[in-house]
């Protein structure tokens, strides 16, 4: 088991955002986390990447308890998140942003190799390598955020709504790339509003409602689950 979250709760001041959630991610999987706005999807990601401390419960990653580990050290263990709302560095160029993704690494040859790989996955970024991040279009920033996270060569890639705000064409493209990344050997935990696409691509998925996991199963199962259909897939 690569990631195991056990009964995790998280508080924002007095507001409890997560009420004892548990989930697992196996090596090689794409796992999707779906749920309505405010369900706690991003919060779950923050707990895993460590930028918010958990109130109770444990998080295990790659055989090690990381519940209390600092966020930057989790990156060194192979856990990297592309944040929601892109969160790229606006004043840095595309290349500098990608370079920041490899901040924890020192293997120059490996970094150069991964840079080629990322620029191969996202030709648009290759064309704009000298452009400042802040001047990229929304879609390009999204790609940059995903590419930058890949540059840390993570064992587990956390993607928080990578398709947010993209045109349908680009959404397709992003999901194709996510599948490709996964096939190249990176495990992925994916948060999505776009439940249809996410469930179709994911091996397994969890449904989150007001800070609780209410359903889980294979992507296929949930895609055909009547209650999931009703709540998250629109009229199907």
């Amino acid at each position: 088991m690569l990631l195991e979250i056990d009964d995790v709760s998280l508080l924002y001041g007095r507001i409890q955002a997560l009420h004892g959630i548990s989930l697992t991610v196996e090596e090689g999987e794409i796992v999707a986390l779906i749920g309505a706005n405010g369900a706690g999807k991003s919060t779950t990601m923050r707990a895993i990447s460590g930028i918010r401390p958990v109130a109770s419960g444990r998080i295990r990653f790659d055989g090690e308890d990381i519940t209390k580990l600092r966020a930057d050290l989790r990156v060194r263990r192979g856990l990297c998140q592309a944040p929601e709302g892109r969160g790229i560095f606006p004043g840095m160029t595309v290349l500098e942003n990608l370079d920041m993704g490899a901040y924890t690494r020192r293997d120059r040859a490996g970094i150069a190799q991964d840079l080629d790989r990322v620029l191969g996955l996202f030709p648009r970024l290759a064309e704009r390598r000298k452009q400042q991040g802040g001047t990229l279009s929304g879609g390009e920033q999204q790609m940059l955020a995903v590419g930058r996270a890949l540059m840390s060569r993570p064992k587990l890639l956390l993607l928080d709504e990578p398709s947010m705000g993209l045109a349908p064409m680009l959404i397709q493209q992003i999901f194709t790339i996510i599948t490709e990344i996964n096939e190249q050997g990176t495990t992925i935990l994916l948060v999505e509003q776009n439940a249809q696409q996410a469930l179709a691509r994911a091996h397994r998925a969890y449904v989150l409602e007001t800070g609780r996991i209410v359903k889980s199963g294979t992507g296929e199962e949930l895609l055909h689950d009547p209650s999931v259909k009703d709540a998250y897939l629109g009229v199907a």
Partner: peptide, 14 residues
């Protein structure tokens, strides 16, 4: 510079 530009993102990059 990364901290100045986006502290959360900086942390997420390690």
């Amino acid at each position: 510079i990364s901290i100045r530009e986006d502290e959360d993102a900086a942390q997420l990059m390690g």
